[in-house]
Amino acid sequence: MIRRRDVVAGLAGTLAGTLAAGPLVLGSRPARAAAWPARPISVVVPYPPGGSTDITARIVGERLSIALGQPLVMDNRPGAGGNLGLEIVARAAADGHTLGVATTAHAINMTLFRKLNYDTLKSFAPVALLTENPLVLVVPAQSAPRSVADLIAAAKARPGALNYASSGIGQSTHLAAELFASMAGIKLTHIPYRGSAPAITDVIAGRCDLMFDTTQSVLAHVEGGRVRALGITAAERLPLARDIPTIAEAALPGYVAIAWNGLVAPKGTPPEIVARLNAETVRAMQEPAVAAKFAGLGATSRPLSPEAFGAFMAAEIAKWGAVVKQSGTTLD
């Protein structure tokens, strides 16, 4: 069903030695005699090494370092739901030598947090969309529900009795479940964890009834029979897992919840630098080898201009803001 083991194993092997050595410096070609880039470019990744956002940034960064003639230094700054890293980018000099990776969480955080030290739309110059990744609705392998409709029926029969795990309050794994519950007219109990790994571990053990998790994190468990996949949150089925229906086709027409990430620069970065970064990023994402790596992880990419990516982020802020308000969740 899922042909991803070789892809993930190859990525894990490539990253293992590098991550153990600390921050990754990608590329070693000498700088070209141009005004920009004049030195290595720092890419702030607001999550720990080894996660899906970090893997994405490193794959793309390797190609950009070649195209731009300067190393891209991955600077992992996890903390505060992804806010710490983006605050660093917002305060950085707008000279094209500092970039950041924004994610779905940074659209969610605009409503979730009572106070932020940045504004996802006003503090940054949008550069390019990197990847979009659907989530997978999974239940323990021994669970009674065998379809999305079964799960909804079970939740309606016992309001609030079923619990769901997430990788943390305000993460896409949390809000995807809230959107699902809202559209299905059911009540679920949220159990947040510090990361996807401990959350899915408790789903596998049967201590949690369900979870929405990224394809990178969960498809190996589906393949291994440790959890059962009921549905995909994308608008269409994944080529990687054709036998898993979309939640929209299975039970909830119109339901879509995508985890995404993209490059941003500090507000005021010269338009010509943003345009060059966008062109090189789009070119990198369309390289067959790069596209194949992401396809093996269940991720896709779309070539968006900086303006289109900015509009995309604004739409995501509005969409998830409504879900956050309905859930009643807020953080300081």
Rank of each mutant, 00 (worst) to 15 (best):
Y164I: 07
V45H: 05
A315T: 04
T14W: 15
Q70V: 13
A161Y: 04
S305T: 15
F180I: 00
L64K: 05
G51A: 08
E87C: 11
S301W: 07
D75G: 01
M313Q: 14
R114Q: 14
T53R: 11
A257K: 10
T329D: 15
G17F: 02
I59M: 13
D209Y: 04
R276I: 05
R77H: 12
A177W: 03
G310Q: 07
K156I: 04
P49I: 04
A311Q: 14
S147L: 02
H221T: 02
R207D: 14
H221V: 00
K122G: 10
A248I: 01
T18C: 14
P49G: 08
G51P: 00
L151V: 01
I55A: 14
G22K: 03
P126N: 07
P192T: 00
G321K: 08
Q326N: 15
L137T: 00
A181P: 05
I41S: 08
D209R: 06
K156P: 04
L277R: 05
A292N: 03
V264K: 06
L297I: 04
R283N: 10
A141N: 05
K267S: 13
P245R: 02
S123R: 07
A248C: 09
D213E: 15
A105H: 12
G61E: 03
S196D: 13
Q142E: 13
H97C: 11
A94T: 01
L175M: 15
L112G: 11
R226N: 08
E62F: 10
N133E: 15
D243Y: 00
Q142I: 00
E287W: 08
D202Y: 09
A199I: 02
S327T: 02
A284K: 02
G160C: 06
Y255S: 08
G61V: 02
L11N: 06
V290I: 07
G13H: 13
V218I: 12
A299K: 04
P253I: 01
L15E: 12
L252W: 10
I186Q: 05
W260C: 07
G61C: 07
R302T: 09
A291G: 03
L304N: 07
D150G: 10
Q326R: 15
G225C: 03
A57N: 03
K187Y: 08
C208G: 10
A35F: 09
P30I: 00
R228M: 08
T330L: 15
T53E: 15
P266Q: 09
G254D: 10
T120H: 10
E287H: 14
E132R: 14
V282R: 13
N117S: 12
L99E: 06
V44R: 07
T201V: 11
E236G: 00
F124N: 06
P198A: 11
A9N: 09
T330W: 13
P134R: 01
I169F: 13
S123E: 06
G50I: 03
L135F: 09
L129I: 00
A257P: 02
V222R: 01
Q286K: 12
K187N: 12
G310V: 01
L331T: 01
K115D: 14
L175V: 06
R146M: 02
R228H: 12
M183R: 14
A128T: 06
P198H: 05
D332T: 01
